[in-house]
Design a protein around this nucleic acid. Structure first.
Lengths: 193, 193
DNA sequence: GCCTGCATGTAAACGGTTACATGATTCG
DNA sequence: CGAATCATGTAACCGTTTACATGCAGGC
Protein backbone atom coordinates (compact mmCIF):
# COMPACT_ATOMS: atom_id res chain seq x y z
CA UNK A 1 0.00 0.00 0.00
CA UNK A 2 1.95 2.93 -1.28
CA UNK A 3 1.38 6.40 0.09
CA UNK A 4 -0.25 8.38 -2.66
CA UNK A 5 0.63 11.95 -3.40
CA UNK A 6 -1.47 14.77 -2.04
CA UNK A 7 0.21 17.55 -3.92
CA UNK A 8 -2.19 17.26 -6.88
CA UNK A 9 -5.10 17.90 -4.54
CA UNK A 10 -3.45 20.88 -2.97
CA UNK A 11 -3.00 22.30 -6.45
CA UNK A 12 -6.56 21.40 -7.42
CA UNK A 13 -7.74 23.08 -4.27
CA UNK A 14 -5.94 26.33 -4.96
CA UNK A 15 -7.21 26.26 -8.53
CA UNK A 16 -10.75 25.91 -7.16
CA UNK A 17 -10.37 29.40 -5.69
CA UNK A 18 -9.71 30.78 -9.15
CA UNK A 19 -7.43 30.42 -12.18
CA UNK A 20 -3.74 30.65 -11.35
CA UNK A 21 -0.26 30.20 -12.67
CA UNK A 22 2.20 27.79 -11.07
CA UNK A 23 3.99 30.73 -9.58
CA UNK A 24 0.75 32.11 -8.25
CA UNK A 25 -0.18 28.77 -6.71
CA UNK A 26 3.05 28.78 -4.79
CA UNK A 27 2.40 32.29 -3.58
CA UNK A 28 -1.16 31.49 -2.56
CA UNK A 29 -0.05 28.46 -0.57
CA UNK A 30 2.66 30.44 1.15
CA UNK A 31 0.21 33.12 2.13
CA UNK A 32 -2.65 30.94 3.31
CA UNK A 33 -1.81 27.37 4.25
CA UNK A 34 1.88 27.81 5.02
CA UNK A 35 1.57 26.77 8.66
CA UNK A 36 0.07 23.39 7.84
CA UNK A 37 0.89 22.80 4.18
CA UNK A 38 3.61 23.83 1.77
CA UNK A 39 4.70 22.98 -1.73
CA UNK A 40 7.82 23.58 -3.76
CA UNK A 41 8.14 24.48 -7.44
CA UNK A 42 9.72 21.10 -7.97
CA UNK A 43 6.34 19.62 -7.14
CA UNK A 44 3.96 22.19 -8.55
CA UNK A 45 5.12 22.43 -12.15
CA UNK A 46 5.27 18.70 -12.85
CA UNK A 47 1.90 18.23 -11.15
CA UNK A 48 0.39 20.95 -13.29
CA UNK A 49 1.50 19.12 -16.44
CA UNK A 50 0.21 15.87 -15.07
CA UNK A 51 -3.13 17.41 -14.14
CA UNK A 52 -3.43 18.78 -17.65
CA UNK A 53 -2.62 15.39 -19.18
CA UNK A 54 -5.32 13.81 -17.02
CA UNK A 55 -7.85 16.41 -18.02
CA UNK A 56 -8.24 17.79 -14.50
CA UNK A 57 -6.92 21.23 -15.38
CA UNK A 58 -6.46 23.17 -18.56
CA UNK A 59 -4.57 26.21 -19.71
CA UNK A 60 -6.75 29.21 -19.92
CA UNK A 61 -4.39 31.55 -21.68
CA UNK A 62 -1.44 33.65 -20.70
CA UNK A 63 -0.98 36.76 -18.72
CA UNK A 64 1.69 39.40 -19.14
CA UNK A 65 3.59 41.34 -16.58
CA UNK A 66 7.09 40.06 -16.19
CA UNK A 67 7.56 36.81 -18.05
CA UNK A 68 4.47 35.31 -19.67
CA UNK A 69 2.52 33.20 -17.17
CA UNK A 70 0.54 30.08 -18.02
CA UNK A 71 -2.79 30.41 -16.31
CA UNK A 72 -4.51 27.16 -15.40
CA UNK A 73 -8.13 26.57 -14.48
CA UNK A 74 -10.04 23.55 -13.20
CA UNK A 75 -12.02 21.39 -15.58
CA UNK A 76 -15.27 19.81 -14.54
CA UNK A 77 -13.41 16.54 -13.96
CA UNK A 78 -10.89 18.41 -11.85
CA UNK A 79 -13.59 19.79 -9.62
CA UNK A 80 -15.04 16.30 -9.24
CA UNK A 81 -11.64 14.86 -8.37
CA UNK A 82 -11.18 17.55 -5.74
CA UNK A 83 -14.55 16.80 -4.19
CA UNK A 84 -13.91 13.07 -4.17
CA UNK A 85 -10.62 13.63 -2.34
CA UNK A 86 -12.35 15.99 0.06
CA UNK A 87 -14.72 13.21 1.12
CA UNK A 88 -12.01 10.55 1.50
CA UNK A 89 -11.06 9.90 5.12
CA UNK A 90 -7.65 11.13 6.18
CA UNK A 91 -5.19 8.44 7.20
CA UNK A 92 -3.33 9.82 10.20
CA UNK A 93 0.42 9.97 9.69
CA UNK A 94 2.53 9.58 12.80
CA UNK A 95 4.67 12.70 13.03
CA UNK A 96 8.40 12.82 13.67
CA UNK A 97 9.13 15.37 16.33
CA UNK A 98 12.84 15.76 16.84
CA UNK A 99 12.23 17.97 19.85
CA UNK A 100 10.46 15.17 21.69
CA UNK A 101 13.14 12.71 20.71
CA UNK A 102 15.76 14.94 22.29
CA UNK A 103 13.69 15.33 25.41
CA UNK A 104 13.10 11.61 25.59
CA UNK A 105 16.86 11.09 25.84
CA UNK A 106 17.24 14.31 27.79
CA UNK A 107 18.62 12.82 30.98
CA UNK A 108 22.04 12.79 29.31
CA UNK A 109 21.98 16.60 29.29
CA UNK A 110 19.30 18.31 31.43
CA UNK A 111 20.65 21.77 30.62
CA UNK A 112 20.19 21.13 26.91
CA UNK A 113 16.59 20.12 27.55
CA UNK A 114 15.98 23.37 29.33
CA UNK A 115 17.47 25.28 26.39
CA UNK A 116 15.27 23.40 23.93
CA UNK A 117 12.22 24.15 26.02
CA UNK A 118 13.03 27.85 26.21
CA UNK A 119 13.67 28.12 22.50
CA UNK A 120 10.55 26.17 21.67
CA UNK A 121 8.47 28.31 23.96
CA UNK A 122 9.72 31.46 22.30
CA UNK A 123 9.02 30.09 18.84
CA UNK A 124 5.53 29.01 19.74
CA UNK A 125 4.74 32.31 21.43
CA UNK A 126 5.84 34.01 18.24
CA UNK A 127 3.66 31.77 16.14
CA UNK A 128 0.74 32.44 18.44
CA UNK A 129 1.19 36.17 17.99
CA UNK A 130 1.35 35.73 14.23
CA UNK A 131 -1.89 33.76 14.35
CA UNK A 132 -3.57 36.58 16.18
CA UNK A 133 -2.50 39.03 13.50
CA UNK A 134 -3.70 36.73 10.74
CA UNK A 135 -7.02 36.43 12.52
CA UNK A 136 -7.44 40.18 12.66
CA UNK A 137 -6.57 40.54 8.98
CA UNK A 138 -8.86 37.69 7.98
CA UNK A 139 -11.82 39.05 9.91
CA UNK A 140 -11.24 42.48 8.45
CA UNK A 141 -10.59 41.67 4.82
CA UNK A 142 -12.89 38.73 4.29
CA UNK A 143 -15.92 39.31 6.48
CA UNK A 144 -18.87 37.47 4.97
CA UNK A 145 -16.72 35.41 2.62
CA UNK A 146 -18.15 31.92 2.18
CA UNK A 147 -14.76 30.32 2.81
CA UNK A 148 -14.05 32.32 5.96
CA UNK A 149 -15.47 29.85 8.52
CA UNK A 150 -13.23 27.12 7.09
CA UNK A 151 -10.17 29.32 6.95
CA UNK A 152 -10.81 30.39 10.52
CA UNK A 153 -11.13 26.77 11.57
CA UNK A 154 -7.61 25.99 10.38
CA UNK A 155 -6.37 29.11 12.13
CA UNK A 156 -8.03 28.16 15.41
CA UNK A 157 -6.33 24.82 15.16
CA UNK A 158 -3.00 26.56 15.13
CA UNK A 159 -4.01 28.77 18.03
CA UNK A 160 -5.21 25.86 20.15
CA UNK A 161 -2.06 23.91 19.44
CA UNK A 162 0.39 26.70 20.16
CA UNK A 163 -1.45 27.59 23.37
CA UNK A 164 -1.33 23.99 24.51
CA UNK A 165 2.35 23.82 23.62
CA UNK A 166 3.07 26.96 25.62
CA UNK A 167 1.36 25.46 28.64
CA UNK A 168 3.30 22.25 28.14
CA UNK A 169 6.62 24.09 27.99
CA UNK A 170 5.88 25.83 31.27
CA UNK A 171 4.66 22.67 32.93
CA UNK A 172 7.68 20.72 31.77
CA UNK A 173 10.21 23.31 32.89
CA UNK A 174 8.57 23.25 36.29
CA UNK A 175 8.38 19.47 36.46
CA UNK A 176 12.02 19.00 35.49
CA UNK A 177 13.14 21.62 38.00
CA UNK A 178 11.35 19.81 40.77
CA UNK A 179 12.46 16.34 39.73
CA UNK A 180 15.52 15.02 41.57
CA UNK A 181 18.34 16.04 39.26
CA UNK A 182 21.08 13.63 40.30
CA UNK A 183 21.39 10.05 39.16
CA UNK A 184 19.10 7.52 40.71
CA UNK A 185 18.99 3.84 40.59
CA UNK A 186 16.71 2.37 38.00
CA UNK A 187 13.76 0.53 39.44
CA UNK A 188 13.71 -1.75 36.41
CA UNK A 189 16.69 -3.62 35.15
CA UNK A 190 20.09 -2.03 35.48
CA UNK A 191 20.98 -1.17 31.92
CA UNK A 192 23.43 1.63 32.46
CA UNK A 193 27.12 1.06 32.24
CA UNK B 1 21.34 23.09 2.83
CA UNK B 2 20.38 19.44 2.75
CA UNK B 3 18.27 17.95 5.51
CA UNK B 4 20.52 15.65 7.46
CA UNK B 5 19.35 12.32 8.74
CA UNK B 6 18.19 11.94 12.31
CA UNK B 7 17.78 8.20 12.24
CA UNK B 8 21.37 7.61 13.41
CA UNK B 9 20.66 9.64 16.52
CA UNK B 10 17.47 7.80 17.26
CA UNK B 11 19.45 4.57 17.06
CA UNK B 12 22.27 6.02 19.16
CA UNK B 13 19.67 7.11 21.67
CA UNK B 14 18.11 3.69 22.02
CA UNK B 15 21.55 2.16 22.29
CA UNK B 16 22.29 4.58 25.14
CA UNK B 17 19.62 2.79 27.16
CA UNK B 18 21.47 -0.48 26.79
CA UNK B 19 22.92 -2.89 24.20
CA UNK B 20 20.42 -3.98 21.58
CA UNK B 21 19.97 -5.78 18.31
CA UNK B 22 18.47 -4.05 15.27
CA UNK B 23 15.30 -5.98 15.85
CA UNK B 24 15.25 -4.93 19.47
CA UNK B 25 15.80 -1.30 18.56
CA UNK B 26 12.74 -1.41 16.36
CA UNK B 27 10.71 -2.97 19.16
CA UNK B 28 11.92 -0.42 21.70
CA UNK B 29 11.01 2.47 19.45
CA UNK B 30 7.59 1.03 18.78
CA UNK B 31 6.94 0.64 22.47
CA UNK B 32 8.22 3.96 23.68
CA UNK B 33 8.47 6.75 21.12
CA UNK B 34 5.93 5.47 18.62
CA UNK B 35 3.62 8.46 18.94
CA UNK B 36 6.30 10.97 18.01
CA UNK B 37 9.02 8.93 16.34
CA UNK B 38 9.23 5.75 14.32
CA UNK B 39 11.78 3.87 12.28
CA UNK B 40 11.68 1.06 9.76
CA UNK B 41 14.08 -1.85 9.33
CA UNK B 42 15.06 -0.35 6.02
CA UNK B 43 16.60 2.48 7.99
CA UNK B 44 17.83 0.75 11.09
CA UNK B 45 20.02 -1.98 9.64
CA UNK B 46 21.95 0.23 7.21
CA UNK B 47 22.40 2.85 9.91
CA UNK B 48 23.75 0.24 12.30
CA UNK B 49 26.41 -0.74 9.75
CA UNK B 50 27.22 2.89 9.13
CA UNK B 51 27.47 3.61 12.85
CA UNK B 52 29.84 0.69 13.21
CA UNK B 53 31.98 1.92 10.30
CA UNK B 54 32.20 5.35 11.93
CA UNK B 55 33.17 3.88 15.26
CA UNK B 56 30.05 5.10 17.04
CA UNK B 57 28.76 1.62 17.82
CA UNK B 58 30.30 -1.81 18.00
CA UNK B 59 29.13 -5.39 18.05
CA UNK B 60 29.16 -6.82 21.48
CA UNK B 61 28.47 -10.43 20.64
CA UNK B 62 25.48 -12.47 19.69
CA UNK B 63 22.47 -13.75 21.51
CA UNK B 64 20.53 -16.91 20.82
CA UNK B 65 16.84 -17.60 20.93
CA UNK B 66 15.42 -17.81 17.48
CA UNK B 67 17.89 -16.66 14.89
CA UNK B 68 21.22 -15.34 16.17
CA UNK B 69 21.01 -11.62 16.98
CA UNK B 70 23.84 -9.13 16.58
CA UNK B 71 23.95 -7.08 19.73
CA UNK B 72 25.35 -3.56 19.39
CA UNK B 73 26.57 -1.19 22.07
CA UNK B 74 27.65 2.43 22.05
CA UNK B 75 31.30 3.35 21.91
CA UNK B 76 32.67 6.34 23.76
CA UNK B 77 32.58 8.30 20.48
CA UNK B 78 28.98 7.23 19.97
CA UNK B 79 27.99 8.58 23.35
CA UNK B 80 29.73 11.85 22.55
CA UNK B 81 27.99 12.10 19.18
CA UNK B 82 24.64 11.54 20.88
CA UNK B 83 25.31 14.26 23.42
CA UNK B 84 26.45 16.70 20.74
CA UNK B 85 23.22 16.09 18.81
CA UNK B 86 21.24 16.48 22.02
CA UNK B 87 22.60 19.99 22.47
CA UNK B 88 22.06 21.08 18.86
CA UNK B 89 18.98 23.29 18.43
CA UNK B 90 16.04 21.72 16.65
CA UNK B 91 15.10 23.28 13.34
CA UNK B 92 11.31 23.32 13.25
CA UNK B 93 9.87 21.46 10.26
CA UNK B 94 6.56 22.76 8.97
CA UNK B 95 4.13 19.87 9.15
CA UNK B 96 1.78 18.72 6.40
CA UNK B 97 -1.65 18.17 7.84
CA UNK B 98 -3.98 16.73 5.25
CA UNK B 99 -6.92 17.15 7.60
CA UNK B 100 -6.44 20.91 7.72
CA UNK B 101 -6.00 21.06 3.97
CA UNK B 102 -9.35 19.37 3.52
CA UNK B 103 -10.99 21.70 5.98
CA UNK B 104 -9.42 24.70 4.30
CA UNK B 105 -11.21 23.76 1.09
CA UNK B 106 -14.18 22.46 3.03
CA UNK B 107 -16.78 24.85 1.68
CA UNK B 108 -17.09 22.56 -1.35
CA UNK B 109 -18.52 19.86 0.92
CA UNK B 110 -19.56 20.91 4.44
CA UNK B 111 -20.90 17.45 5.25
CA UNK B 112 -17.51 15.92 4.51
CA UNK B 113 -15.90 18.42 6.89
CA UNK B 114 -18.27 17.35 9.62
CA UNK B 115 -17.41 13.71 8.99
CA UNK B 116 -13.69 14.47 9.15
CA UNK B 117 -14.18 16.33 12.41
CA UNK B 118 -16.14 13.48 13.95
CA UNK B 119 -13.61 10.88 12.89
CA UNK B 120 -10.71 12.99 14.05
CA UNK B 121 -12.34 13.60 17.38
CA UNK B 122 -12.85 9.91 17.92
CA UNK B 123 -9.25 9.14 16.98
CA UNK B 124 -7.88 11.78 19.30
CA UNK B 125 -10.12 10.71 22.16
CA UNK B 126 -8.79 7.21 21.67
CA UNK B 127 -5.23 8.43 21.69
CA UNK B 128 -5.91 10.41 24.81
CA UNK B 129 -7.22 7.32 26.56
CA UNK B 130 -4.15 5.37 25.46
CA UNK B 131 -1.92 8.09 26.88
CA UNK B 132 -3.66 7.80 30.20
CA UNK B 133 -3.00 4.07 30.26
CA UNK B 134 0.62 4.57 29.34
CA UNK B 135 0.93 7.10 32.12
CA UNK B 136 -0.42 4.66 34.67
CA UNK B 137 1.91 1.93 33.47
CA UNK B 138 4.90 4.27 33.43
CA UNK B 139 4.27 5.54 36.94
CA UNK B 140 3.82 2.02 38.21
CA UNK B 141 6.68 0.22 36.50
CA UNK B 142 9.35 2.91 36.49
CA UNK B 143 8.83 4.92 39.67
CA UNK B 144 12.13 6.49 40.62
CA UNK B 145 13.76 5.77 37.26
CA UNK B 146 16.13 8.57 36.28
CA UNK B 147 14.64 8.78 32.80
CA UNK B 148 11.06 8.92 34.03
CA UNK B 149 10.66 12.71 34.18
CA UNK B 150 11.78 12.98 30.56
CA UNK B 151 9.58 10.15 29.39
CA UNK B 152 6.66 11.71 31.20
CA UNK B 153 7.38 15.04 29.55
CA UNK B 154 6.94 13.55 26.09
CA UNK B 155 3.78 11.87 27.27
CA UNK B 156 2.34 15.10 28.67
CA UNK B 157 3.03 16.68 25.32
CA UNK B 158 0.77 14.14 23.70
CA UNK B 159 -1.89 14.63 26.35
CA UNK B 160 -1.86 18.41 26.02
CA UNK B 161 -2.06 18.18 22.25
CA UNK B 162 -4.87 15.67 22.09
CA UNK B 163 -6.86 17.59 24.67
CA UNK B 164 -6.44 20.78 22.70
CA UNK B 165 -7.43 18.99 19.53
CA UNK B 166 -10.56 17.64 21.17
CA UNK B 167 -11.55 21.12 22.24
CA UNK B 168 -10.84 22.38 18.74
CA UNK B 169 -13.03 19.71 17.16
CA UNK B 170 -15.94 20.64 19.39
CA UNK B 171 -15.44 24.33 18.83
CA UNK B 172 -15.21 23.89 15.08
CA UNK B 173 -18.30 21.71 14.81
CA UNK B 174 -20.19 24.38 16.74
CA UNK B 175 -18.77 27.25 14.70
CA UNK B 176 -19.57 25.62 11.38
CA UNK B 177 -23.08 24.77 12.51
CA UNK B 178 -23.73 28.36 13.40
CA UNK B 179 -22.12 29.80 10.29
CA UNK B 180 -24.54 30.59 7.47
CA UNK B 181 -24.47 27.42 5.41
CA UNK B 182 -25.71 28.67 2.04
CA UNK B 183 -23.57 30.45 -0.52
CA UNK B 184 -22.77 34.04 0.13
CA UNK B 185 -21.23 36.68 -1.97
CA UNK B 186 -17.55 37.11 -1.52
CA UNK B 187 -16.60 40.40 0.01
CA UNK B 188 -13.33 40.32 -1.87
CA UNK B 189 -13.06 39.75 -5.57
CA UNK B 190 -15.57 37.43 -7.20
CA UNK B 191 -13.51 34.40 -8.07
CA UNK B 192 -16.19 31.77 -8.14
CA UNK B 193 -17.77 30.60 -11.32
C1' DG C 1 4.77 -30.36 10.23
C1' DC C 2 3.45 -25.77 10.72
C1' DC C 3 2.84 -21.52 12.76
C1' DT C 4 4.66 -17.78 15.49
C1' DG C 5 8.27 -14.98 17.09
C1' DC C 6 12.90 -13.60 16.65
C1' DA C 7 16.16 -11.90 13.46
C1' DT C 8 18.98 -9.73 9.34
C1' DG C 9 19.15 -7.68 5.32
C1' DT C 10 18.30 -5.45 0.38
C1' DA C 11 16.07 -3.40 -3.83
C1' DA C 12 12.90 -0.55 -5.63
C1' DA C 13 9.80 2.96 -5.54
C1' DC C 14 8.35 7.20 -3.91
C1' DG C 15 7.48 11.84 -2.30
C1' DG C 16 9.74 15.83 -1.63
C1' DT C 17 13.31 19.55 -1.39
C1' DT C 18 17.24 22.01 -3.24
C1' DA C 19 19.85 23.96 -6.55
C1' DC C 20 20.40 25.43 -10.86
C1' DA C 21 19.34 27.37 -15.55
C1' DT C 22 16.83 30.64 -18.01
C1' DG C 23 14.29 34.65 -19.33
C1' DA C 24 11.07 38.77 -19.60
C1' DT C 25 9.45 43.18 -17.59
C1' DT C 26 9.36 47.17 -14.73
C1' DC C 27 11.27 50.61 -11.90
C1' DG C 28 14.73 53.41 -9.83
C1' DC D 1 22.14 49.61 -16.28
C1' DG D 2 21.10 46.81 -12.55
C1' DA D 3 18.01 44.99 -9.22
C1' DA D 4 13.74 43.11 -8.08
C1' DT D 5 9.87 40.62 -9.40
C1' DC D 6 7.43 37.51 -12.06
C1' DA D 7 7.81 33.22 -14.17
C1' DT D 8 8.85 28.16 -15.94
C1' DG D 9 11.17 24.22 -15.65
C1' DT D 10 14.52 20.19 -14.58
C1' DA D 11 18.17 17.23 -12.48
C1' DA D 12 20.10 15.51 -8.60
C1' DC D 13 19.81 14.14 -4.25
C1' DC D 14 17.82 12.46 -0.06
C1' DG D 15 15.36 10.21 3.51
C1' DT D 16 11.91 6.88 4.06
C1' DT D 17 8.66 3.19 3.37
C1' DT D 18 7.34 -1.17 1.37
C1' DA D 19 8.00 -5.48 -0.19
C1' DC D 20 10.60 -9.21 -0.53
C1' DA D 21 14.05 -12.91 0.59
C1' DT D 22 15.90 -15.71 4.04
C1' DG D 23 16.44 -18.46 8.09
C1' DC D 24 16.55 -20.44 13.01
C1' DA D 25 14.09 -22.12 17.27
C1' DG D 26 10.28 -23.46 20.11
C1' DG D 27 5.68 -24.95 20.93
C1' DC D 28 1.29 -26.92 19.37
Amino acid sequence: MAKRPRTPYAVLGVLSMGPQSGYGIKRTIEQSTAHFWSESYGQIYPVLHQLEAEGLARQKGAKRGGRAAKIYELTRAGRDALKAWLRRPVTPQPPRLELLLKIFFGRHDPAAVRAHLDRHRAQQADLNRRYREIERALLQDHAGHADLPYWLATLRYGQRLTSATLAWCDETVRALDEAPPAQQRSSTKENER
